[in-house]
């Protein structure tokens, strides 16, 4: 597996976790817990953005492995 493919896998896992956190946050009623959940979902979004850019660079370097 190339590095690009590995990073893409990590990215997919993170997206799943981020979506689950958002789902928890939307149902949670305790305002404090809701806040913690949604804040961390946002942080994960940043990380996802970072990794996404990284995947873009990797794909530029190794165009033969482009696409998921």
């Amino acid at each position: 597996m190339t590095v690009a493919a590995q990073v893409k896998q990590t990215l997919a896992g993170l997206k799943g976790a981020q979506a689950a956190l958002e789902a928890f946050a939307s149902i949670e009623e305790n305002p404090e817990a809701k806040f913690v959940l949604s804040r961390n979902a946002d942080r994960l979004k940043q990380v996802i953005g970072d990794l996404h850019r990284r995947v873009g660079v990797l794909e530029y370097e190794e165009p033969q492995y482009k696409g998921f």
Binding site: L21, F24, A33, V36, L37, N40, R43, L44, Q46, V47, D50, L51, R53, R54
Partner: peptide, 20 residues
């Protein structure tokens, strides 16, 4: 640097959200 920053943020997230 990018990966390191991501790992740092993720470990902070895990610390905060783990108890929940």
């Amino acid at each position: 640097e990018v990966y390191g920053r991501c790992a740092g943020t993720l470990s902070e997230v895990i610390d905060e959200i783990g108890p929940l």
